[in-house]
């Protein structure tokens, strides 16, 4: 079983990202579950969402405390959040929305999702919508689900031009995500 934890802020589509990932896995005939921690959400507040992927039915319903992957949707959380790296194992990986190189204790992958979203015009109320962009990077790093399944899930979730742009964003991120190597 793979356990993924998403970190972002209210209004960035963190919950939608974990839902979409679970739906895409469903389309690839995998078992999956996705849920957020609901609080008194407001735009800007720290949000966590979880996704589990397995080839057998998933029984656990509690939050992900020992993630295999941590997805950082908002780069500022790397600086201010105490929650992002909790419970990580030595084998865990980080996929972060970040414009430069990140030096962390774990295998780390970065993608400048803000730039991709902005360039494609995926902007809502002044915020670049990076949630789906991050999924493109994550799917590349994990190897599952297929890019096709993710694009189908996007088509089911969104409509028209938004669906089109998100599908394109996923492809760009899939190609551009890169691993950051720790310099010895």
């Amino acid at each position: 079983m793979l356990e993924i934890r998403f970190h972002g802020r209210g209004g960035q589509g963190v919950v939608t990202a974990s839902n979409l990932l679970a739906e895409a896995c469903g389309l690839d005939n995998l078992y999956s579950s996705a849920f957020p921690i609901y609080g008194a959400e407001r735009r800007g507040a720290e949000i966590e969402a979880y996704c589990r992927i397995s080839d057998s039915p998933i029984r656990v319903t509690s939050p992900v405390e020992e993630p295999d992957y941590v997805v950082v949707i908002d780069p500022s959380l790397l600086r201010i959040s105490k929650a992002v790296f909790r419970g990580m194992k030595t084998t865990s990986k980080v996929v972060a929305n970040y414009s430069g190189e990140l030096q962390l204790k774990w295998r780390t992958f970065t993608i400048n999702a803000n730039k991709i979203a902005t360039e494609l015009g995926l902007v809502k109320s002044g915020w670049p919508m990076v949630n789906v962009v991050m999924l493109g990077a994550l799917v590349r790093v994990m190897g599952i689900p297929s890019l096709e399944a993710l694009k189908r899930a996007i088509e089911e979730e969104f409509e028209g031009r938004v669906a089109e742009l998100n599908a394109k964003a996923v492809e760009v991120a899939y190609k551009e995500v890169k691993e950051n190597y720790v310099l010895a």
């Binding site: 839902n19 078992y31 996705a34 849920f35």
Partner: peptide, 12 residues
């Protein structure tokens, strides 16, 4: 059914 834990969890 458990609020949020089941009501809002998307699964198969």
């Amino acid at each position: 059914m458990d609020g949020f834990i089941l009501s809002h969890t998307k699964t198969n």
